[in-house]
Amino acid sequence: MLEIENLHVQYGNIEALHGISLHVKPGEMVTLLGANGAGKSTTLMSIMRLPPPEAPRVTQGRIMYKGIDLLPVPPHLVVAQHKIGLVPEGRRVFGNLTVLENLKLATYARKDTAQIHRDYERVFSLFPRLSDRKNQRVDTLSGGEQQMLATGRAFMCGADFILLDEPSMGLSPLLMQELFKVLMDLNQAGMTIFVVEQNAHIALKYAHRAYLMEAGQIVMEGKASELATNPEIQKAYLG
């Protein structure tokens, strides 16, 4: 479904990704692990084609999605046409809007009214806390609730492929488990998921496959269960 081949990415003149390759198949839940600054967010930004000044510049390689080259596609069409949703680093929900307005905004480009209604119900059943806070302003939500909203919002875009950037950041262990269970539920219902994580414990517990990234390169890949028992990874990431 998603195929990244030999991707080189620069910020200005500094190369941040040195030719990474990875793929995600339909229905999979794949995780990308790595320490701070490894280039995980850069990988996601390259897929989403966010506008300057945040935009990393792809200098070499390809990003193919369902057989189509994503590189010339502007970000709003990556979402609206190709149905890829991103839960960005730091959530970036709209704090001056209510929960419901945030979700509604995510349906901006959609016309399938009946399905939109089913999707609202789905989000509120996955995240009952959001359902109790529909009309609350989002900057008054807790960090965990904002993370749920960010995830629900990506879902409301009508995505069948969701990218998440460190969703566990700042969550209590309990909330973290809750969130990953929801991701697993979604995945079992057919959603393809690509989750970037520093928390290898939780990511390897739920994902099918994993990539490990260090200093802009993929240094290891394999089944999540295999990586979880790999002595190097255990030493460096599972301590």
Binding site: M48, L50, P51, E54, P74, P75, H76, L77, V79, A80, G85, L86, P88, R92, V93, F94, G95, N96, L97, E101, K104, L105, A106, T107, Y108, A109, R110, R153, A154, C157
Partner: peptide
């Protein structure tokens, strides 16, 4: 929705295209 998008842009412009909205 376009009104909400106007408010959303004033809060976080970069996150708006992530909603499928052309800025």
């Amino acid at each position: 929705k376009i009104g909400m998008a106007m408010r959303a842009i004033s809060y976080d412009r970069v996150a708006v295209p992530l909603m499928g909205i052309p800025i």
